[in-house]
Amino acid sequence: MIEKDNRPVNLNLLTISLPIIGLSSILHRISGLAIFFSFPLVVWLFSVSLKSEESFVVLTNLLQSSFLLKTMTYLILVGFSYHLLAGFKKLLSDAFGIGETLESGRLLSWLVFGATFVMAIYFLTVVF
């Protein structure tokens, strides 16, 4: 018996198909991680905005002039929306067992993607 297992394992993720429900689940995790790491920035922006009237104005001007900051705000908003909606989907399944069949799961995943898309368009008009 060989001690170390040298046998290959077929686990090239690029060759394995990911159904829509799986994709929505993985994106839920990725968006959650992204929100977590963007948290310090959001808290900092929030604290600056509350410091004084002047700092609020400075921040508002900065948010309206800096493309980078605009883009970051936009991405955080979209990521947060997706994470929130996908979280509702997860809660529906955990609490009521809704979305646990292939059909309903697919439908809910599409709904989450669709709603996120609509919100993404809306945020586009708001932020930029």
Binding site: I21, S25, D94, G97, E100, T101, L102, G105
Partner: peptide, 26 residues
């Protein structure tokens, strides 16, 4: 189990492990 549901997508017998797992969880 995070409800990825790949199991349900591929089952050749059309079974639903996600639902079973959810039943155990409840």
């Amino acid at each position: 189990c995070h409800g990825i549901m790949n199991c349900v997508s591929v089952c050749p017998k059309g079974l639903n492990p996600t639902e079973a797992i959810s039943n155990i969880r409840n």
